[in-house]
């Protein structure tokens, strides 16, 4: 693994989550260090989005432990997660169509000026943030409903960065984007790593994963199916783990490597 600190910022230990008759997650383990990009991959319905939502406090976990900087914490509502410093960009972006870009960026943490919402400062900071991320949108004062899919995506990511998070979770951020905007988002991910943030990146696109991730964690049918270092794992090995064609060698290799890392 890469230059990462010893204690992970965020760690999941034996996390399980049920939805009625669906066991969406079973005994899942995951570690994210500061300055590390962890790609979370798996087939459709593997439980990636569910895992993200447990960390973000949308769906509290049924069993297991979530550790933040080495200490067990309970995350029961979105507020708990954002309080710790977890920011999430969901697959279904969940922006308010009727509010403008500034309103969405600051939703739930509006800046105040003498008791009232400080539209001016919010607008100023929003413009600054968007331009440092080289995000181009027509205006910060138009409703989200009039933006394209890619523009909404970058607004959603920008929204995640406003609260100065320590861990950023991106659920398929590039799925709907064109070439140029995908490159922008990937650049953005690298900039987050440079800022020493932990990043969890969910993606179906192996090229994206290879380009920016340090570690790949594979989920299959709601269970861990291996964790690989991107540098010394081939495309095929990851695909095999995703589809379940994993021969034991791969799992053992992964196990051996994490054992070495622990020493």
């Amino acid at each position: 693994m890469v230059h990462v600190s010893a204690t992970p910022v965020l760690a999941l230990r034996g996390v399980s989550k049920r939805f009625g008759a669906v066991q969406a997650l079973t005994d899942v383990e995951l570690e994210v260090h500061a300055g590390e990009v962890v790609a979370l991959v798996g087939d459709n319905g593997a439980g990636k989005s569910t895992l993200v939502k447990t960390i973000a406090g949308v769906h509290p976990i049924d069993e297991g432990v979530i550790e933040w900087e080495g200490k067990a914490v309970s995350i029961n509502k979105p507020h708990d997660a954002s309080g710790l410093g977890v920011a999430t960009v969901y697959q279904d972006l969940a922006l308010c169509d009727n509010l403008d870009v500034v309103g969405n960026l600051y939703l739930g943490r509006e800046l105040k000026h003498r008791g009232a919402i400080d539209e001016v400062t919010m607008e100023q900071k929003a413009r600054e943030l968007l331009s440092t991320l080289s995000i181009r949108i027509p205006s910060v004062r138009i409703p989200i409903a009039s933006l394209s899919g890619g523009q909404r995506q970058v607004v959603a990511i920008a929204r995640a960065l406003i609260g100065d998070p320590k861990v950023v979770i991106l659920d398929e951020p590039t799925a709907a984007l064109g070439v140029e905007q995908t490159a922008q988002v990937l650049d953005l991910v690298e900039r987050l790593r440079e800022r020493n943030l932990g990043v969890i990146l969910i993606s179906h696109n192996m090229a994206d994963v290879k380009a920016v991730a340090d570690t790949v964690a594979v989920l299959r049918l709601g269970k861990n199916n291996g964790s690989f270092s991107v540098k010394d794992t081939s495309h095929e090995e990851i695909i095999a783990a995703i589809t379940g064609a994993t021969d034991n060698a791969v799992t053992r290799r992964a196990g051996r490597r994490s054992a070495e890392a622990a020493k």
């Binding site: 009727n98 939703l107 009232a116």
Partner: peptide, 23 residues
């Protein structure tokens, strides 16, 4: 101009988005 008013608009414009924003 108040956060309470903003919450009302947010819930009216997208319940899921509002919930995830901690409202």
């Amino acid at each position: 101009r108040t956060t309470y008013g903003r919450k009302i608009f947010a819930v009216g414009g997208g319940i899921e988005a509002a919930r995830r924003a901690g409202i």
